[in-house]
């Protein structure tokens, strides 16, 4: 309960900070709409030559684009800013102050910085997703809906844990802010179903940089393509990765010696 209250406070502080730069919201909105517009235009061009892409119908790919934007928004709003702040503060020594606070350092590092305006990506993702669902026509059953939400959650946890492990490397390597961009640089592969890619790339997007869990797998759950094995594996992967990243973080903390005098 205390954690939730703390997260709420962090959000309020960040919103108050960003409200001073209201015009940024307009630019952020403009950039997000443009990016999505061109993605949809590309899709329209491709689907003018075919009815389905490896068995995926246009509205299913549209749902994938929606989830891609939604999770991309979650990363840009809540995951990346905090991790960037963390690696910076390890480099310049201000992480000392985080450690002196009575709350859990991982919680503070994760939620102390939120890029509020990027929330527009989450909103646009939801809009696209709703349009896609309406176009699919068929009613989404309760089981599929639960599976879908479950997979969105596991996908987010996996992505968060992945970022935390990379950011924790800062305790040894100090300058890792560039490494954090690895996820986003391959993330655009998630706009298309994983089954399109050749084996080596598919495995890379599952096991090396886990893009698949955040994009293809939730939409597979939504379109009843997912079998129980994958579902279970995703849950276990999320749980294991979360515990491992937490342990790695604690291990890294012990190696932190402070950068400033």
């Amino acid at each position: 309960m205390n954690y939730l209250r703390l997260i709420g406070v962090f959000f309020r502080v960040n919103i108050a900070g960003e409200l001073a730069y209201r015009i940024n919201f307009l630019f952020s909105f403009f950039e997000s709409v443009m990016g999505l517009g061109f993605t949809l235009a590309g899709m329209a061009i491709i689907f003018s030559y075919t009815d389905s892409l490896n068995g995926w119908r246009p509205e299913e790919i549209l749902a994938l684009v929606g989830v891609y934007s939604l999770i991309g928004g979650v990363i840009r709003v809540a995951i990346l800013p905090g991790m960037q702040q963390l690696t910076e503060s390890v480099r310049d020594g201000t992480f000392d102050f985080t450690l002196t606070k009575p709350e859990d350092a991982q919680l503070i590092a994760t939620f102390s910085r939120v890029a509020v305006w990027k929330i527009i990506d989450i909103f646009l993702g939801l809009v696209i997703l709703i349009i896609a669902l309406a176009r699919m026509g068929s009613v989404i059953g309760g089981v599929q809906a639960v599976e879908f939400l479950g997979m969105l959650l596991t996908g987010s946890v996996i992505v968060y844990s992945f970022f935390l492990i990379l950011a924790t490397l800062a305790f040894w390597l100090v300058r890792v802010e560039n490494i954090l961009t690895i996820f986003l640089s391959v993330y655009h592969a998630g706009r298309w179903p994983l089954s399109l890619y050749p084996g080596w790339l598919r495995y890379g997007l599952i096991f090396v940089i886990p893009v698949a869990f955040a994009t293809t797998i939730p939409v597979e759950a939504l379109t009843s393509r997912l079998n129980w094995v994958t579902l279970l594996a995703a849950f276990i992967a999320a749980a294991v990765l979360f515990i491992v990243s937490r342990a790695f973080w604690k291990f890294g903390l012990r190696h932190y010696s402070g950068a400033s005098a």
């Binding site: 892409l53 560039n178 690895i182 706009r191 298309w192 399109l196 790339l201």
Partner: peptide, 27 residues
Amino acid sequence: ASLLIWMIGQVLEPLVFLVVWSTVSNG
């Protein structure tokens, strides 16, 4: 490291469209 990450991005973008258009073409 950033050079490597940047190059991965440079390769992946055209590779994604390569795969998509090959799939359309094969179908």
